[in-house]
Amino acid sequence: MSRWWLPLLFVFLALPAWAGDHAAETRMLSIAEELRCLVCQNESIAASRADLAVDLRQQIREQIQAGRTDDDIRAYMVERYGDFILYRPPLKATTVLLWFGPLLLLAFGIGLLAITLRRRRANRLDERLSLDEQRRARALLGQTNDVGDLR
């Protein structure tokens, strides 16, 4: 046991490599999280265990090691699998409705609400009783002995 410190020394020497790998791995996952796995389409490439996702994660790792930027790697994926692989679709003529559709729906809803409210207020103002109705109302009110609210 005289060389008990040897494994410790090796662990210490390996530390920088470990740290480097960890940073690259985090970066790989951050890219993969925003990529759709095409085999199981509701999973990201980071989360999926499909063969293709494993291969693509490896592909991202290799490209990070080769010094390519995140945008380069995303472009590489889009070139092969189309915009469909991006969970965050780019703003294009064909995706305008996708991006602004919800806003349009919100505007439509607010418009509908405004119209409804205005119409309701107009209705209330229109409610003017005819002479006959006033007489009936007075007669009905006269019948009650509960005058609490009328005073």
């Binding site: 095409l38 085999v39 293709l52 291969d55 693509l56 592909q59 092969r80 699998y81």
Partner: peptide
């Protein structure tokens, strides 16, 4: 290793 498959956008 499926590399050419990736280049052709093969997913299934």
């Amino acid at each position: 290793n499926g590399r050419v498959g990736i280049d052709y956008g093969v997913y299934g």
